[in-house]
Computed example of a mutant assay.
Amino acid sequence: MTTNRGLITDSFKVVKKARNGVTREKRPPPPLSPQKEPESETVHEEELERLRQFDLNWRFGPCTGISRQQRWERAKLHGLSPPEEIRDLLLQTHPDHGYNRSLWSEYPL
């Protein structure tokens, strides 16, 4: 019993070779112009990353159901020495409320 097995070349596109052995030279792609992010965006992302790391550090107690500011104050009250840098970030006025909400605030309790 013979099985109809297709050739591997049946599933690939046919590429024609250049005539008379002449090949075209490939040009390198044009250089990409580096697009710099505004410095404020980078600083904003770095600050949010530091706040996320604070959320993930269980040494300062659980962070679900409370704001970052409340968690920082509770940790200070219990003598857990939370970083002053986090408090300074939280006390700055930001139009973005993402600074005060914890990493887990979007998840239901």
Rank of each mutant, 00 (worst) to 15 (best):
M1Q: 00
T3V: 14
N4A: 14
I8M: 01
I8S: 09
S11H: 07
K13A: 15
K16M: 11
K17Q: 12
R19D: 06
G21F: 04
G21P: 06
G21L: 08
T23H: 05
R24W: 13
E25Q: 09
K26L: 11
R27Q: 12
P29M: 15
P30G: 05
P31V: 15
L32C: 04
S33H: 01
P34N: 09
Q35H: 07
K36N: 09
E37K: 10
S40V: 03
E41S: 09
T42L: 07
V43Y: 08
V43R: 11
H44L: 11
E45V: 11
L51Y: 03
Q53A: 10
Q53C: 01
Q53T: 09
W58Y: 10
R59V: 06
F60T: 02
F60S: 04
C63W: 02
C63I: 04
T64E: 15
G65M: 05
G65R: 07
G65H: 10
I66L: 10
I66V: 14
I66R: 05
S67N: 13
R68S: 04
R68T: 06
R74M: 15
R74Q: 12
R74C: 05
L77C: 00
H78S: 00
G79W: 00
L80W: 00
E84T: 08
E85A: 13
I86S: 06
R87I: 02
R87Q: 07
D88M: 15
L89C: 05
L89Q: 05
L89H: 08
L89G: 05
L91W: 11
Q92T: 13
Q92M: 13
P95I: 13
H97F: 11
H97P: 05
G98K: 03
G98L: 08
Y99W: 01
Y99S: 04
Y99C: 01
N100E: 07
S102M: 02
L103H: 06
L103F: 14
S105R: 05
S105Q: 13
S105F: 13
Y107V: 14
P108T: 02
L109T: 03
L109A: 10
